[in-house]
């Protein structure tokens, strides 16, 4: 046996493949919303504790992403969007992804409990369980409501951030949860409208696959209308204020306009411009969520500088 024969020249796992298993883009949303949840809470947190807590929340989110990729490797291999992921491309084995995801989950939950409090750790554990088991293993392949119920998993991070700071669950954290929860269906259905072929090929029962694009368009508009009062109501809590309220009005008007544009389009129009409006609304929905949380942070910063809107109503 020569030295050369000891070297495996096949696809070898790289450090970056394990980073890819954590779904960094999803993780960035988790980090941002959790950080906002933590910073807008009316309690100051030691910066090291805050940094470590957000890091463990991010690792927990990444762990659920790895577990998701472990379970969905068969679907990922079929869909164009996900074919390059580490498991379908053969760079990471399924069992390694499973072990990686499980260990990271244990570390993230355990360390968050030790760093902040057990309520936050419990919420993180439930989030991982909800995303990996309830959404990935059960809902995603069985019902067109997959994204409606499964959206809860992505909605927990600001609630966990709030729990890190306060050790409790308040109306503010429930409304931040509700904002992401209600935003998720129109966001993913806009994506499904122009990625429908992929979902059909993979046999994922998205609403576009089971009920068609027309029903999906109606639902996007319906859910977006239902989202507006949730987003606006945050203005009238202790974390809201006139800055957030003004921003929310603009962002909701934009998203509503986008949902209306999607709703009024015919299939022929959408096919003709290769779903340009649907792609645009998908992008707007990303700015929409980012904008709301960014303005909550701006509102909190303004209050930190002593700007108090004494006359601003606080209903919740």
């Amino acid at each position: 046996m020569t030295d050369a024969s000891l070297v495996d020249t096949g696809p070898e796992t790289d450090f970056t493949d394990y980073i890819a298993l954590l779904k960094p883009r999803v993780m960035s949303l988790v980090v941002f919303t959790a950080l906002v949840g933590l910073l807008v809470a009316p309690v100051s947190v030691n910066p090291v504790i805050a940094f470590a807590s957000v890091l463990f929340i991010a690792i927990g989110g990444g762990a659920s992403g790895a577990l998701n990729m472990w379970w969905e490797s068969d679907i990922d291999a079929v869909m164009k969007r996900t074919q390059g992921r580490p498991i379908p491309s053969g760079r990471v084995t399924r069992s390694n992804a499973l072990i990686f995801g499980l260990w990271l989950s244990v570390i993230a939950v355990g360390m968050l409990g030790l760093t902040s409090n057990y309520l936050a750790a419990g919420l993180l554990a439930f989030t991982i369980f909800f995303y990996a088991v309830i959404y990935t293993m059960w809902l995603k392949r069985t019902t067109p409501l997959n994204i409606v119920i499964g959206g809860a998993a992505g909605a927990f991070p600001p609630m966990i951030g709030w729990a890190v700071a306060t050790g409790s669950i308040g109306i503010e954290s429930i409304l931040m949860f509700a904002l992401i929860f209600m935003w998720t269906p129109p966001h993913f259905w806009a994506l499904a409208l122009f990625m429908n072929d992929d979902y059909t090929k993979a046999g994922v029962p998205m609403l576009t696959v089971t009920h068609g694009r027309c029903v999906t368009r109606n639902n996007i508009l319906g859910y977006t209308i239902a989202l507006v009062p949730v987003a606006i109501s945050v203005s009238f809590t202790s974390i809201g204020g006139p800055i957030y309220f003004a921003a929310a009005l603009v962002l909701n008007a934009l998203f509503l306009k986008g949902a209306y544009d999607i709703w009024k389009r015919t299939e022929a129009q959408a096919e003709a411009d290769k779903f340009a409006t649907e792609r645009k609304v998908f992008r707007i929905s990303l700015y929409y969520l980012f904008g709301h949380f960014a303005f909550l942070l701006i509102e909190a910063t303004a209050k930190g500088f002593g700007i108090n809107w004494a006359a601003w109503p606080q209903w919740f």
């Binding site: 450090f15 030691n46 090291v48 504790i49 470590a52 890091l55 030790l114 760093t115």
Partner: peptide, 23 residues
């Protein structure tokens, strides 16, 4: 990179311990 991550983890646990004690 793995070594860096492990070192970072150890440093973080140390900092958390110090922060907890200071709090």
């Amino acid at each position: 990179m793995l070594g860096g991550v492990l070192l970072g983890f150890v440093a973080l646990v140390f900092l958390i311990t110090v922060a907890k004690m200071m709090n």
